[in-house]
């Protein structure tokens, strides 16, 4: 009986994980609060079920075969030591995975285009823009339209699409708010676009998912989704009560180290663009081939980022030419 139990263990574990996920709020990836995360969750379930169609019978088959054909005295099971080929059977098990993978492939291609992070979300509300910079070891968020900045904290209105522009001041990181949707790398020298939206009010966990040095684990932040009124009054509050982020203040932030939540009523004009282009020297710039937004042409004022919209919607495509 032992092999049986052992065969079933992984299945049980997976089932357990799945059942837990249904009710456990802690499984934040499977408890999305926004359209992107919702579609990704659907996709996770669809692909799991498709795979399970093959996996579960295989596991059962394994258990049955191992049990039935074990070597014991007086076994009545058939024994054919030279049976080594059956075209019919082999066509079957080349065929089944091919069909499953074909279906999964179609689903994947559709979703890949649908969930392309740089694609703007359909909504009748005007999206807000948040410029995200990963630093050693903290997140700097800037609201170019509102003119405020924060460290390790985001507040967004519910039901309003958010356009995140991601870059990095140093090593690469990955910007991830599991309950709103999947992550995207923040890389220096380029501005990537990630569209997310919260459908419900709530407080969501966010983190830097890509290792970038000593205090990497401290790069977590909270995303609060609130009503639009609350969001607006928060903006006003920050504007009236918080200090301004000066260039010196920014230089201080670039010093390695983790940070508490900070709020700033304003930030230097064009700071994000400066961060993106800081490593580009001269016109044969390093990052042009990436096709990412150079973000410098039209970005002298803080609120011009919105103007980037037309040009920047599907600009995330890198061209890894030559590989």
């Amino acid at each position: 009986m032992r092999p049986f139990i052992r065969m079933l263990t992984p299945v049980l574990f997976v089932l357990m994980a799945l059942t837990l996920s249904g009710c456990g709020e802690q499984f934040i990836v499977l408890d999305p609060k926004g359209p992107i995360g919702e579609s990704q969750k659907d996709l996770i379930y669809i692909s799991t079920i498709l795979c399970a169609i093959v996996i579960v019978p295989v596991l059962i088959l394994t258990a049955v075969i191992v049990w039935r054909y074990r070597d014991k005295p007086g076994s009545k099971a058939s024994y054919k030591p030279n049976w080594e080929h059956s075209t019919k059977l082999e066509i079957t098990w080349w065929g089944i995975p091919i069909v499953i993978i074909l279906i999964l492939a179609i689903v994947t291609v559709r979703y890949t285009h649908m969930l392309e992070p740089s694609k703007a979300l359909a909504s009748d509300k005007k999206p807000i823009t948040i410029q995200v910079t990963s630093m050693d070891w903290k997140w700097l968020f800037k609201y170019p339209e509102e003119g405020i900045a924060t460290v390790n904290y985001i507040k967004i209105p519910e039901d309003v699409p958010v356009k995140f522009q991601l870059t990095s001041d140093t090593a690469m990181n990955s910007f991830w708010i599991p309950q709103l949707g999947g992550q995207l790398y923040s890389m220096s020298g380029m501005a990537m676009t990630l569209h997310l939206q919260a459908d419900e009010q709530g407080s969501y966990f966010g983190s830097g998912a890509n290792f970038n040095g000593r205090d990497f684990a401290q790069m977590t932040f909270t995303v609060d989704a609130t009503s639009e009124e609350e969001y607006k009054s928060w903006i006003e509050e920050v504007k009236s009560t918080s200090p301004a982020l000066t260039m010196e203040g920014y230089e201080k932030l670039t010093e390695p180290g983790s940070s508490e939540v900070m709020l700033f009523s304003s930030f230097p004009v064009g700071l994000f663009e400066k961060i993106v282009t800081q490593y580009i020297n001269g016109d044969g710039g390093a990052h042009q081939q990436h096709g990412s937004e150079p973000a410098s042409e039209d970005a002298d004022t803080a609120d011009s980022a919105a103007a980037n919209d037309e040009s920047g919607t599907d600009n995330n495509a890198h061209h890894h030419g030559g590989h």
Partner: peptide, 17 residues
């Protein structure tokens, strides 16, 4: 190495080409 060269061929960083 050729691939590397092709990828970086324009990256003169404002210096001499």
């Amino acid at each position: 190495l050729f691939a590397t060269f092709v990828v970086l061929r324009l990256n003169t960083d404002g210096g001499p080409t």
